[in-house]
Amino acid sequence: MTASSPGGHDGVRGEATTERITVDEYQSSEGDYLIYVLHTATYDFARPHVEGKEVLDFGCGTGYGTAGLAGVATRITGVDIAPEAVAHAQAHYQLPNLEFRTIGAIEHSALPFEDDVFDVVVSFQVIEHVRAVDRYLAEIRRVLRPGGVFLCVTPDRTLRLFPGQRPWNEFHITEYAPEGLRSVLATEFPDVELLGMTAGPAVLRAELSRYRRTRLLTYPVTFPGIPDRWRLGGVRLVKRLIGGRSAGGAPTGGRRDFGFGPGDVRVAAGATPCVNIVAVARTPQHG
């Protein structure tokens, strides 16, 4: 699972092209806590879809969301390319119906499963990190049974970026608008339902302000067509100058009350302002 800043303690550190979240790290500021709340709300949304099902969490990160779904799933396997994240998950979350495995990057390695073995695949905040999206989706489709469900959640570029702008998050390859995501998913899934994730203005105010500020400050190094090495160098410099998320330090020693939580997040068709696109894609009933 991905977040907005690399993970930091208990030996969990994101790889060069990925981001990881552990629960304690995201309690130090209101902005960091909002990311945790959005992640938690995403897994809460998934619970009815995975109840009584055999599930794959593709991009499980440090495993806390996967473990939460294990409470209702028949069996769930979490996979991630970061060995440190998987080791953290294995050490902290142990249940009879729960397994964590390290996998290779999907650009070079197939998923280590037979065809048609899962009822549901969840993959949250992952697709924006993937270069070979066609292979990523084909592998997900391959391991899903007929009538299976793919739950995909990714940031909505509509709020984060100017038209045509490259991502200002250095770890993101492509950020999608809703119809762009639908078109990509439709290459493997004929039935795609799009929803939006939002919250009240008091909850989102700081996040939306960050989006507006960051897309403006980084535009000189993220305009359409800029070479990726220039974009990466530029956004890293801007991040150092303006400061990034505070997650990645030591735990704060207790959870603070910021006055909101996962119950304040809403997932619905046409939700605005939409911070994350929530896609529910289905395979045909007969393969």
Score class of each variant (00 low, 15 high):
A67P: 06
T74A: 08
G68H: 09
V37F: 06
R47L: 14
H39S: 12
I21C: 13
A41R: 09
H39L: 14
V23R: 14
D57N: 07
S29T: 15
F45Y: 15
D44N: 13
A70G: 12
A46H: 10
T66K: 07
E54A: 05
T66L: 07
A46V: 08
D57L: 08
L69Y: 06
G63L: 06
P48S: 08
D24H: 12
T42S: 13
D57R: 08
G61E: 01
Y64F: 14
G63Q: 06
C60H: 02
E54I: 11
G71K: 12
F45E: 01
I21F: 09
A41L: 08
R47S: 11
Q27V: 09
Y64P: 04
Y64T: 11
G61T: 01
I35F: 10
Y64W: 11
A73P: 06
D24Q: 14
H49M: 11
D44H: 12
T62A: 14
Y33P: 05
E25Y: 14
V50G: 02
V55G: 04
H49N: 04
Y33V: 05
T66D: 06
V37R: 02
E54Y: 00
Y43L: 03
G52I: 09
L56G: 03
E54L: 01
S28L: 15
T42N: 01
G65L: 11
V72A: 14
G52C: 05
Q27S: 09
G65H: 06
G71R: 13
Y64D: 11
E25L: 13
E25F: 12
G52N: 04
G68M: 13
H49W: 14
D32M: 10
G31P: 10
S28T: 12
K53G: 05
V50F: 00
G68I: 04
K53W: 02
T62Q: 03
T62Y: 02
T22D: 15
G59C: 06
T40A: 04
L38M: 12
G61H: 01
G52R: 03
